[in-house]
Amino acid sequence: MIKEYKSGTSTTQDGSDAITLPSHVAGSGTQDRLVDTARVYAHAAASDNTLKAYARDWAHFARWCRMKGAEPLPPSPEMIGLYLADLASPSDPSPALSVSTIERRLSGLAWNYAQRGFALDRKNRHIATVLAGIKRKHARPPVQKEAILRDDILAMVATLPYDLRGLRDRAILLLGYAGGLRRSEIVSLDVHKDDTPDSGGWIEIMDKGALLTLNAKTGWREVEIGRGSSDQTCPVHALEQGLHFAKKDFGPVFVSTARDGKTALDARLSDKHVARLIKQTALDARLSDKHVARLIKQTVLDAGIRSDLPEKDRIALFSGHSLRAGLVSSAEVDERYVQKHLGHASAEMTRRYQRRPDRFRVNLTKAARL
């Protein structure tokens, strides 16, 4: 746990150690336990990945300040404005950061200052005007990943073997596609509620399909995945097969496998260890949620999708989000149902996932009787 000391106080990278008893309250065993409980809840306020990103943001800013002969505390809007400018147009050989990354860095700084008892005024002119200028000069439309459509996903699934690892990967692809799930949501699933402390949700398999209860970016939501028209393409059947042959009745749904591909290990697929799908990992290696993206890219190549392009360009077109985008682009249902299924807060966010929009399905010109 990384600590930074300032005026006799310490703060961990998640800020939980900032929670203590007031100085005028005498400590006791009960109160100390309450402090520990509060720190656990404070740590749970953000995901581990977010906390790690915020810690990296602070470390980078603190190092930058030292190189400029300044201190990161207390917050100086003038220095932060200069820092943002340096991120957009570096004075050293470092690559310029995108606008979205710069905004994320600023959010990380605001969070870190809050954990240290300071308020960062992002509307201060030294920060707000610099950021507005960066957006005006450097902002670009977001680069969208190619959608994986129905025929694509079927071709990708057909490339997988029927060993334990192949069954697992088939379930990842079909469940992720049919559920419009994020990579992190796929690997965070448990077999039952409260199986593990780091669970991000659980599954219930029913006669007509599977119900996924997810604790996602936008809060708790339920995702209903119906059974498919055939066992070869049914996500629920793939999930059942994967669990059955892995002998999984407790804990994480998706785990790494042994080198021989015949034994399921206990380790959840996580972002701590990255492995390739095709090449086997060491017996004790754990795969990551990036495994889903690697799986997609490898099977895209194997299935011959967009074979008119060079291999490098084909790989760059696809990522984990291709599954979600593909569902939105392929599903011919009311937009409201797709929005609910994906857990989007707004219809506008759902439309961003639409890669093949029927732009004139709603004709407001005719609706206005013109």
Rank of each mutant, 00 (worst) to 15 (best):
Tyr5Gln: 09
Ser7Asp: 11
Thr11Asn: 01
Asp14Thr: 12
Ser16Pro: 08
Ile19Ala: 04
Ile19Met: 08
Pro22Ala: 01
His24Cys: 03
Val25Leu: 01
Gly27Leu: 06
Gln31Thr: 03
Arg33Ile: 06
Ala38Val: 12
Ala42Met: 13
Ala44Ile: 00
Asp48His: 00
Thr50Leu: 04
Leu51Met: 07
Ala55Gly: 12
Ala59Gln: 03
Arg63Pro: 00
Arg63Gln: 10
Cys65Gly: 00
Cys65Glu: 02
Arg66His: 04
Pro72Gln: 15
Leu73Ser: 00
Pro74Arg: 04
Pro75Leu: 13
Ser76His: 03
Glu78Ser: 04
Leu84Phe: 15
Leu87Gln: 09
Pro90Asn: 13
Asp92Phe: 15
Pro93Leu: 11
Ser98Tyr: 00
Arg104Cys: 02
Arg105His: 11
Arg105Thr: 14
Tyr113Pro: 15
Arg116Tyr: 14
His126Val: 06
His126Pro: 04
Ile127Asp: 08
Ile127Pro: 14
Val130Ile: 07
Val130Arg: 07
Ile134Met: 06
His138Lys: 05
Arg150Tyr: 14
Asp152Cys: 15
Leu154His: 00
Leu154Tyr: 02
Ala155Ser: 13
Thr159Arg: 09
Leu160Ser: 09
Gly179Thr: 12
Gly180Ala: 13
Ser184Trp: 13
Glu185Thr: 05
Lys193Glu: 07
Gly201Pro: 10
Met206Trp: 02
Thr213Met: 09
Asn215Met: 06
Val223Tyr: 00
Glu224Phe: 01
Arg227Cys: 01
Glu240Thr: 02
Ala246Cys: 02
Ser256Phe: 09
Thr257Pro: 03
Asp271Asn: 04
Lys272Leu: 02
His273Cys: 00
Gln280Gly: 06
Asp284Glu: 12
Ala285Val: 05
Ala293Tyr: 11
Arg294Cys: 07
Leu295His: 04
Val300Cys: 07
Ser307Gly: 05
Ser319Pro: 05
Leu327Asp: 09
Val328Asp: 10
Val333Pro: 13
Glu335Tyr: 10
Arg336Lys: 13
Val338His: 11
His341Gln: 13
His341Cys: 00
Ala347Thr: 02
Glu348Lys: 01
Arg352Val: 10
